Amino acid sequence: MYYALKVWSDIAPLNFHEVAGDNADILIDFPRSQHKDHYPFDGPGGAVAHAFFPGDQPIAGDVHFDNDEAWTFRSSDPREMDLFAVAVHEFGHAIGLSHSSVNESIMRPYYHGPVGDPLQYHLPYDDQLRIWQIYGLNSNLLRCSSMCSLGTQKVATGSIVIKQRTAEGRELKQKQKLLKKLNSICGEEAELLFRIQ
Protein backbone atom coordinates (compact mmCIF):
# COMPACT_ATOMS: atom_id res chain seq x y z
CA MET A 1 0.00 0.00 0.00
CA TYR A 2 2.91 2.28 0.75
CA TYR A 3 4.09 2.28 -2.88
CA ALA A 4 0.59 2.86 -4.26
CA LEU A 5 0.09 5.90 -2.01
CA LYS A 6 3.61 7.13 -2.76
CA VAL A 7 2.75 7.32 -6.47
CA TRP A 8 0.30 10.12 -5.61
CA SER A 9 2.34 11.85 -2.91
CA ASP A 10 5.41 11.95 -5.18
CA ILE A 11 3.70 14.41 -7.51
CA ALA A 12 1.13 16.24 -5.35
CA PRO A 13 1.41 17.84 -1.90
CA LEU A 14 -0.12 14.87 -0.10
CA ASN A 15 1.31 13.17 2.99
CA PHE A 16 0.21 9.70 4.02
CA HIS A 17 1.03 8.29 7.45
CA GLU A 18 -0.14 5.05 9.01
CA VAL A 19 -2.16 5.56 12.19
CA ALA A 20 -3.59 3.15 14.75
CA GLY A 21 -7.34 2.71 15.15
CA ASP A 22 -10.19 3.84 12.93
CA ASN A 23 -9.57 7.60 13.08
CA ALA A 24 -8.01 7.94 9.62
CA ASP A 25 -8.93 9.75 6.42
CA ILE A 26 -8.41 6.57 4.39
CA LEU A 27 -9.26 3.22 5.94
CA ILE A 28 -8.02 0.18 4.00
CA ASP A 29 -9.86 -3.11 4.41
CA PHE A 30 -9.92 -6.56 2.80
CA PRO A 31 -13.49 -7.78 3.36
CA ARG A 32 -15.47 -10.50 1.58
CA SER A 33 -18.95 -10.32 0.01
CA GLN A 34 -21.31 -8.27 2.24
CA HIS A 35 -19.33 -5.79 4.32
CA LYS A 36 -21.67 -3.03 5.53
CA ASP A 37 -21.23 -0.51 2.72
CA HIS A 38 -24.04 -1.63 0.36
CA TYR A 39 -21.48 -2.64 -2.29
CA PRO A 40 -20.88 -6.36 -1.71
CA PHE A 41 -18.04 -8.18 -3.39
CA ASP A 42 -18.77 -11.15 -5.65
CA GLY A 43 -15.90 -13.57 -5.04
CA PRO A 44 -12.96 -14.01 -7.42
CA GLY A 45 -13.16 -11.87 -10.56
CA GLY A 46 -15.83 -9.25 -11.17
CA ALA A 47 -15.62 -6.38 -8.69
CA VAL A 48 -12.13 -6.57 -7.19
CA ALA A 49 -12.08 -3.35 -5.16
CA HIS A 50 -13.87 -0.06 -4.60
CA ALA A 51 -13.19 3.26 -2.94
CA PHE A 52 -15.20 6.22 -1.75
CA PHE A 53 -14.55 9.83 -2.66
CA PRO A 54 -13.41 12.25 0.07
CA GLY A 55 -16.15 14.00 1.97
CA ASP A 56 -17.97 14.23 5.28
CA GLN A 57 -19.49 10.74 5.33
CA PRO A 58 -17.92 8.23 7.75
CA ILE A 59 -16.97 5.99 4.81
CA ALA A 60 -15.45 8.83 2.73
CA GLY A 61 -11.95 8.03 1.49
CA ASP A 62 -12.14 4.36 2.48
CA VAL A 63 -10.77 1.68 0.17
CA HIS A 64 -11.92 -1.96 0.13
CA PHE A 65 -10.18 -4.83 -1.66
CA ASP A 66 -12.02 -8.11 -2.23
CA ASN A 67 -10.30 -10.65 0.02
CA ASP A 68 -11.44 -13.48 -2.27
CA GLU A 69 -9.11 -12.28 -5.04
CA ALA A 70 -5.76 -13.99 -5.56
CA TRP A 71 -3.76 -10.77 -5.20
CA THR A 72 -0.20 -10.63 -6.52
CA PHE A 73 2.60 -8.10 -6.16
CA ARG A 74 5.32 -7.45 -8.74
CA SER A 75 4.00 -10.13 -11.08
CA SER A 76 4.00 -9.43 -14.81
CA ASP A 77 1.39 -12.10 -15.60
CA PRO A 78 -1.62 -10.29 -17.13
CA ARG A 79 -3.93 -13.06 -15.86
CA GLU A 80 -3.12 -12.25 -12.24
CA MET A 81 -4.65 -9.47 -10.13
CA ASP A 82 -1.91 -6.94 -9.38
CA LEU A 83 -2.56 -5.37 -5.98
CA PHE A 84 -0.33 -2.40 -6.73
CA ALA A 85 -2.16 -1.41 -9.95
CA VAL A 86 -5.57 -1.75 -8.32
CA ALA A 87 -4.43 0.13 -5.20
CA VAL A 88 -3.08 3.08 -7.21
CA HIS A 89 -6.44 3.28 -9.01
CA GLU A 90 -8.54 3.02 -5.85
CA PHE A 91 -6.40 5.52 -3.94
CA GLY A 92 -6.97 7.88 -6.86
CA HIS A 93 -10.69 7.71 -6.07
CA ALA A 94 -10.04 8.09 -2.33
CA ILE A 95 -8.24 11.40 -2.97
CA GLY A 96 -10.89 12.69 -5.35
CA LEU A 97 -10.32 11.45 -8.90
CA SER A 98 -13.10 9.98 -10.99
CA HIS A 99 -12.63 7.54 -13.86
CA SER A 100 -10.83 8.69 -17.00
CA SER A 101 -11.51 7.82 -20.63
CA VAL A 102 -7.83 8.27 -21.53
CA ASN A 103 -6.49 4.85 -22.50
CA GLU A 104 -3.11 5.24 -20.73
CA SER A 105 -4.69 6.46 -17.45
CA ILE A 106 -4.51 4.35 -14.29
CA MET A 107 -7.99 5.74 -13.61
CA ARG A 108 -9.62 3.84 -16.49
CA PRO A 109 -12.83 2.17 -15.28
CA TYR A 110 -11.61 -1.41 -15.69
CA TYR A 111 -8.54 -3.37 -14.67
CA HIS A 112 -6.05 -3.68 -17.52
CA GLY A 113 -3.36 -5.83 -15.93
CA PRO A 114 -0.12 -5.20 -14.05
CA VAL A 115 1.71 -1.90 -14.51
CA GLY A 116 5.22 -3.15 -13.79
CA ASP A 117 7.65 -2.61 -10.96
CA PRO A 118 6.14 -0.30 -8.30
CA LEU A 119 9.55 1.28 -7.74
CA GLN A 120 9.75 2.33 -11.39
CA TYR A 121 6.10 3.25 -12.01
CA HIS A 122 5.16 6.84 -12.87
CA LEU A 123 1.62 8.08 -13.31
CA PRO A 124 0.56 8.80 -16.88
CA TYR A 125 0.30 12.46 -17.85
CA ASP A 126 -3.51 12.56 -17.69
CA ASP A 127 -3.49 11.38 -14.07
CA GLN A 128 -0.73 13.82 -13.13
CA LEU A 129 -2.59 16.72 -14.66
CA ARG A 130 -5.87 15.79 -12.97
CA ILE A 131 -4.32 15.45 -9.51
CA TRP A 132 -2.42 18.73 -9.95
CA GLN A 133 -5.73 20.45 -10.73
CA ILE A 134 -7.06 19.36 -7.33
CA TYR A 135 -4.00 19.62 -5.07
CA GLY A 136 -1.31 21.48 -6.99
CA LEU A 137 2.28 20.38 -7.49
CA ASN A 138 4.46 18.65 -4.96
CA SER A 139 7.23 21.16 -4.33
CA ASN A 140 9.72 18.27 -4.22
CA LEU A 141 9.28 17.95 -7.98
CA LEU A 142 10.95 21.31 -8.29
CA ARG A 143 14.49 21.80 -7.21
CA CYS A 144 14.42 25.58 -6.97
CA SER A 145 17.46 27.40 -5.66
CA SER A 146 18.36 31.05 -5.80
CA MET A 147 19.04 30.47 -9.51
CA CYS A 148 15.79 28.49 -9.79
CA SER A 149 17.52 25.49 -11.31
CA LEU A 150 15.77 22.17 -11.82
CA GLY A 151 17.48 18.87 -11.20
CA THR A 152 18.40 17.50 -14.59
CA GLN A 153 17.30 13.99 -13.66
CA LYS A 154 13.71 15.15 -13.27
CA VAL A 155 13.74 16.83 -16.67
CA ALA A 156 15.41 13.84 -18.31
CA THR A 157 12.85 11.38 -16.95
CA GLY A 158 9.96 13.57 -18.04
CA SER A 159 8.51 14.05 -14.59
CA ILE A 160 7.85 17.70 -15.33
CA VAL A 161 7.26 17.62 -19.04
CA ILE A 162 4.28 19.72 -20.03
CA LYS A 163 2.59 18.23 -23.06
CA GLN A 164 0.12 19.83 -25.37
CA ARG A 165 -2.41 17.38 -26.70
CA THR A 166 -4.65 18.74 -29.38
CA ALA A 167 -7.11 15.85 -29.06
CA GLU A 168 -8.46 17.14 -25.78
CA GLY A 169 -8.62 20.87 -26.49
CA ARG A 170 -8.35 21.86 -22.84
CA GLU A 171 -4.64 21.06 -22.68
CA LEU A 172 -3.33 24.50 -23.69
CA LYS A 173 -5.28 26.24 -20.94
CA GLN A 174 -4.17 23.63 -18.40
CA LYS A 175 -0.59 23.99 -19.57
CA GLN A 176 -0.79 27.75 -19.03
CA LYS A 177 -2.22 27.24 -15.52
CA LEU A 178 0.54 24.79 -14.66
CA LEU A 179 3.20 27.16 -15.99
CA LYS A 180 1.69 29.95 -13.87
CA LYS A 181 1.96 27.69 -10.82
CA LEU A 182 5.56 26.86 -11.67
CA ASN A 183 6.31 30.57 -12.11
CA SER A 184 4.89 31.26 -8.65
CA ILE A 185 7.33 28.73 -7.20
CA CYS A 186 10.42 29.35 -9.32
CA GLY A 187 9.84 32.78 -10.80
CA GLU A 188 9.69 33.72 -14.45
CA GLU A 189 12.62 31.46 -15.30
CA ALA A 190 10.29 28.48 -15.14
CA GLU A 191 9.40 28.91 -18.82
CA LEU A 192 13.03 28.30 -19.70
CA LEU A 193 13.33 25.27 -17.44
CA PHE A 194 10.43 23.17 -18.62
CA ARG A 195 10.13 21.53 -21.99
CA ILE A 196 6.76 22.25 -23.54
CA GLN A 197 5.73 19.60 -26.06
Rank of each mutant, 00 (worst) to 15 (best):
Y2E: 15
V7Y: 00
D10F: 00
I11Y: 02
N15Y: 07
N15K: 10
E18A: 13
V19W: 04
A20H: 13
N23P: 04
P31W: 08
P31F: 07
R32C: 06
H38P: 01
H38N: 15
Y39V: 14
D42A: 10
D42H: 10
P44G: 11
F53M: 11
P54S: 02
D56E: 14
Q57L: 14
P58Y: 09
P58N: 11
I59A: 09
A60E: 05
D62C: 12
V63N: 02
H64C: 07
D66T: 04
E69I: 07
T72A: 05
R74W: 06
R74C: 11
S75I: 06
S76H: 11
P78K: 08
E80Q: 15
V86T: 04
H89S: 05
E90F: 07
H99C: 07
S100I: 05
S101A: 13
V102R: 10
N103E: 15
I106C: 08
M107F: 02
M107K: 02
G113I: 04
P114M: 08
V115Y: 00
V115A: 02
P118Y: 00
L123N: 04
D127A: 08
D127N: 09
D127G: 04
Q128A: 10
L129Y: 08
L129H: 06
I131V: 15
I134T: 11
I134E: 10
I134F: 06
G136W: 02
R143S: 15
S146P: 04
Q153I: 13
Q153V: 14
K154P: 01
A156Y: 09
T157F: 03
I160D: 02
Q164I: 13
R165L: 06
R170L: 12
L172S: 13
Q174K: 09
Q174M: 10
L178Y: 01
K181S: 15
L182A: 03
S184I: 00
I185L: 05
E188W: 01
A190E: 02
F194A: 02
I196R: 08
